[in-house]
């Protein structure tokens, strides 16, 4: 029998993965899957926004180029919504130019990872973002 005092009961952090490529969602999901997180998936920007509003995830992993709303648009909407102030955002994108990265960081992303990325690197970033 294990006993836990009420104040250290772990609340499961919710992480949303938004990417229109099924293989990318699988990869990211597989990378971060653990007992500590509940992972949700969205296949486009609009679905992502619906799920973000519904679940107020702790972290959103956003593909920049998605059908519907783009990752940058979603990022802007998260940043301007006070009820999502605690939501961290990591951008995952195939746009590898410095200007793209700057646009992402200016818009308020916590991290910016370029495809292809290392899953272990991603995992580190996810943990950093969640424990900020």
């Amino acid at each position: 029998m294990r006993f836990q005092t009420p104040n250290v009961v772990k609340t499961l952090a919710t992480v949303l993965v938004a990417d229109d490529e099924p293989s990318m969602r699988l990869l990211v999901h597989a990378t971060i899957e653990s007992d500590d997180y509940k992972v949700l998936e969205a296949a486009d920007g609009d679905e992502a926004w619906t799920l973000i509003n519904q679940f107020k995830p702790s972290l959103v992993l956003l593909d920049v180029q998605m059908p519907g709303r783009t990752g940058l648009e979603i990022l802007g909407m998260i940043k301007s919504d006070p009820s999502l102030a605690a939501t961290r955002v990591i951008l995952l994108t195939a746009k590898a130019l410095a200007v793209d990265m700057e646009a992402g960081m200016t818009a308020g992303a916590d991290f910016y990872l370029t495809k292809p990325f290392s899953p272990l690197d991603l995992l580190t970033r996810v943990e950093e973002a969640l424990h900020q």
């Binding site: 490529e21 293989s23 990318m24 990869l27 597989a30 990378t31 195939a94 746009k95 590898a96 370029t114 495809k115 292809p116 990325f117 290392s118 899953p119 272990l120």
Partner: peptide
């Protein structure tokens, strides 16, 4: 092209790294 190549490459490299670094059950 560089943009279009990055997504399949990300899958290839990403899963390779996962397979290499983790002990995964056979179905996975």
């Amino acid at each position: 092209v560089s943009h279009e190549l990055r997504t399949p490459l990300a899958s290839l490299l990403g899963f390779t790294e996962l397979l290499y670094s983790r002990d995964l059950p056979e179905p996975q």
